[in-house]
Amino acid sequence: MITALIRRLAEMVFVMVGISVMVFLIFFATPGSDPAARIAGRNATQEAVAQVRVDFGFDRPLPVQYVLMMKRLFVDRDLKSFVNRGQNVIPQVLEATPITLSLVFGAAVLWVIGGLAVGVIAAATQGSLIDRTLMVLALIGVSMPVFWFGEVMNLLSQARFHDTWLFSWVPALGYKPLSEDPWGWFKTLVIPWFSLAVLYIGIYGRVLRANLVEAYQEDFIRTARAKGLSPARVMLRHALRTSLIPFITMFGLDFGVLVGGSALLTEVVFGLNGIGRLTYIALQNLDLPMILATVIYASFFVVLANAVVDFIYIFVDPRMREA
């Protein structure tokens, strides 16, 4: 167990170093990426540009620059942006985190409940019209690009029907901190939550239904049903329990990826300044320190989620423990 943990940790570190090196190299391979003139300001003299180059260490060999940057990111914790002079990147990432967490948490609650409901109801009414309708809806949910759905939601709630009772409560786009204005926080996030969750409700509902249907063919369920247990009890106590393992795996991975910044399309469409949007803007501006910070942060969550899922597996599934 301990060695597995240590091995896992070593792997995590390896992957994160790999990613940061990759990002670093990609950056320096890009034309126009030399930030010296941008930092120096418009119409700066050649001397000013040269001075910036020396001040920021752009004249040093790449490996040295990489090590220095990592040191400033992790040891000194004062790595500064290339685009917004004097702006520390770590606080930026820390400030964006609660926004992304709020978005992903809320959406996760929605999609777990929704996914469970869709999967269980569809499996219970297998073959009926309800089942078919739910599965078609789930498939439509899976097929909609999230950014487009978000835009349509914006169109409806911010413009077309904003003045009607339906959406008059919807505040302007943007984020309100939970600590300052809990009700405002909730109101601004409801539509983003829903938009982000639709895709996952579809996926989870479909997967859960398939697993439940499969479970019903297993011997232990047949036994349970033969014993005369109520259908609800069979479903909730027996079938659902075994079917939840892949559900948990998927949830862990999806959650990690989203917290790591993959909710960026939702964040861009709804004007939420979360990690995804921060990364996207940093990439567009070729702001290397910010890119490094956000990408390392993102990969950390993805790798962590992978590891957690592995351990949960060992916990939940006794067969894995023995292996």
Binding site: M16, M22, L264, G276, T279, A298
Partner: peptide
């Protein structure tokens, strides 16, 4: 593959 896997898909696509 691990490195590629841990790199959030959209971020990888955007950087490339």
């Amino acid at each position: 593959l691990d490195v590629l896997w841990a790199f959030p898909v959209y971020l990888l696509a955007i950087s490339l």
